[in-house]
Amino acid sequence: MQETLFHLRPAQAADLPAILAVQRQCYLPSMNEDGATWAGRLAAAADFVWVGEVAGKVGAYLATYPSHLGKVTPLGGAFALAADADCLYLHDLAVAPAAAGRGLGARLVAGALAAARQHGWRHAALVCVQDAYAFWQGQGFSAPATLAPAAQAALASYPGPARYMTRQLD
């Protein structure tokens, strides 16, 4: 029997310290979102935040929520769940360096996209930061040609190059 390398599960409030630790390992300090913001997200979108465990410890997370195509959540912004969503917004995916190379990120994304399809949503969207562009392209996301001014302003809240990317769900 082959050993399980990792376990995916819904995030819980008790995971908050581990989520914040993974965030600190993966992002520039200017991109770290505080504990209060994260606690609000876990409370608002409990069904849409997942963690990946390696050897029983959180080594990755994915925070998403139901939204509208073309809406960009600014860095540090609260999750405003759309009752009439047409899109799953993937706000934050992070895999700790010690957990990298196991496929955690791709598996978390695949699970989230499967959940979006079950809800009948036709799109997924995200803001790509740092050096993740090739990863997101590999997951089927691409950058749209234009964004509305409000979305462009929210995108500008992210330091460094940031791109809004979308994917149609089959």
Results as ranks from 00 to 15, higher is better:
A150N: 06
T37S: 11
D47L: 02
G103C: 07
T4Y: 03
G35D: 12
I19K: 04
W121T: 04
F135T: 07
A150H: 08
L16K: 00
V72C: 03
Q137P: 05
V127E: 09
V49W: 00
E33W: 07
H123K: 03
A143K: 12
R167W: 01
L62D: 01
L8A: 11
R102S: 00
V109C: 14
G111C: 15
G35T: 02
L75E: 01
A151F: 00
A43L: 09
A112M: 08
Q137S: 05
M165H: 03
F6I: 02
Y65R: 04
P74I: 11
A13R: 10
L69Q: 08
L126M: 04
L69F: 01
K71P: 00
A132D: 13
L28I: 07
K71C: 08
R117N: 06
S30Y: 08
A156K: 01
D47I: 00
P149W: 11
L75G: 06
A55M: 12
L69C: 08
F79P: 01
V22S: 12
A43H: 10
L16A: 11
A18C: 02
D34S: 11
A114K: 02
G105S: 15
G59T: 10
W136T: 04
P149N: 09
R41D: 00
L8P: 06
I19Q: 05
R167Y: 00
A36K: 15
L20S: 11
A60M: 06
Y164M: 06
Q25T: 07
V51A: 06
Q152H: 04
T64R: 06
G77E: 04
L88T: 01
L20D: 04
P10A: 06
C87Q: 06
Q168P: 04
H7D: 14
M165D: 01
V95H: 01
H123T: 05
L20F: 13
P10G: 04
T73M: 10
Y27S: 03
T64L: 10
R107M: 11
H68Q: 07
K71I: 08
A55F: 00
T4C: 11
L113F: 03
A21Y: 11
G138H: 15
A78E: 08
A85H: 10
F79C: 01
G70R: 01
A43G: 03
A110M: 03
V51T: 03
Q12Y: 05
G105L: 07
H68R: 07
L5F: 04
A39K: 14
A46S: 10
A94G: 03
S157L: 11
